[in-house]
Design a protein around this nucleic acid. Structure first.
Lengths: 202, 202
DNA sequence: TTCTTATGTTAACTTTGTTAACATTAAAGC
DNA sequence: GCTTTAATGTTAACAAAGTTAACATAAGAA
């Protein structure tokens, strides 16, 4: 009665891998342990994934897809270019705070190399395309000079950087969002913060 | 002819560890390989460090110290509060770009836990104190209200976030600094970028 | 039915982190 | 000087992990 595992082991493994990742990070994800927890032999995962990187790639792909979805939702929430960038920034940080391990996985060096996993590259490209589109699709009704377009691009790049930095610093515990305020408000405030020298400087 | 006591093995190990870290990252740093490369027995490192985390902690401490030095230098380069923040941001990013592996080590989850390595905690605190001081030591000659001080703090936090984000995105290859411009100019431009809605928006 | 492929299993091999048990050197006390 | 002791090295072992090979079984195509 060697009732082999019939069901879709692949999906069970993936789900379990995600659970482990969430509360232990990629380092704690051991293929053998994963197999044991799933109730399958220790070599079974190799039938469904290209080793450890293969599993991480699969998890990362799913993460990128979810990330892209949430960014799209935010981007669609308004027609105004600046507002859209703000909304994107808030959604960006929110995803990181709610899914710190996924965020680190898709940005950190534990992410499998993109050139070895075409689907991973596609997922990544797609997510960043959402940002890219929001950045470049400035209000077309306002005719812009090339310089103005470049400036808009730089502003968006700056916004992205700040959002990314906030996300990283918050999930690293370097920045502690005030408990009395909602996260989104705090993030929006930071995003909109202007660094140019104020009038009262002198 | 057991050639015991070759000199200060500890420093040689540290230097070698740093070399490995630089071109392979913390994942590629294997204690046994490190020992072999250093020409010492595979268990020798344990006489000088508290295991792998111990070595990483030692490397991270050195990295924090170098980081703090460069930040201090930048902070001392001007008396103007806003200019100082800009200089700090540029130095911050420059350190990350010149020492990506160190930067990832001191900020990533491969960094040994601070509460297990008091010296590491001190090194980290010291580095962030440099930032903190630059943030809070606003021009005292201009009397500020509490609200103004809070606003200054938020601006500094925003600047830090953006610098951190730029650093991360650049060393991840997500942002590619223009080849024709020097890095510092590019970073300063991004740091100063204002996100408030421009006058020609309507 | 038979052949082939996908999926599982067990057993090995290699590397790594870590510790224990033992060896040698340098330095401190006498 | 001689002895004792702490620091520093060494070898040998262990468990855990990634990976692959060799073999087993299920399910579907021929």
């Amino acid at each position: 009665m060697g009732k082999y595992h019939h069901g879709d082991v692949r999906n069970v493994l993936l789900q379990q891998a995600e659970n482990i990742l969430i509360d232990e990070g990629p380092a704690g994800l051991s293929l053998r342990r994963l197999a044991r927890l799933t109730g399958v032999s220790e070599a079974a995962p190799y039938r469904h994934f290209d080793g450890k990187d293969g599993i991480l790639a699969a998890v990362a792909i799913a993460a990128f897809e979810r990330f892209a979805e949430q960014l799209e939702t935010a981007a669609a929430s308004t027609e105004n270019h600046e507002e859209r960038i703000m909304a994107l920034g808030a959604a960006y940080v929110q995803f990181a705070v709610e899914n710190p391990q996924h965020f680190r996985l898709i940005f950190g060096r534990e992410r499998p190399p993109l050139d070895q996993y075409p689907e991973l590259r596609d997922a990544a490209d797609n997510a960043f395309d959402v940002l890219q589109r929001a950045v470049t699709s400035v209000d077309r009704k306002a005719e812009m000079t090339l310089a103005e377009a470049a400036s808009a691009y730089n502003r968006a790049l700056a916004a992205w950087s700040r959002a990314h930095g906030i996300a990283m610093l918050v999930i690293d515990g370097m920045i502690v969002p005030p408990a009395d305020q909602d996260l989104s408000g705090f993030v929006l405030g930071l995003l909109a913060e202007d660094l140019t020298i104020p009038a009262n400087a002198e």
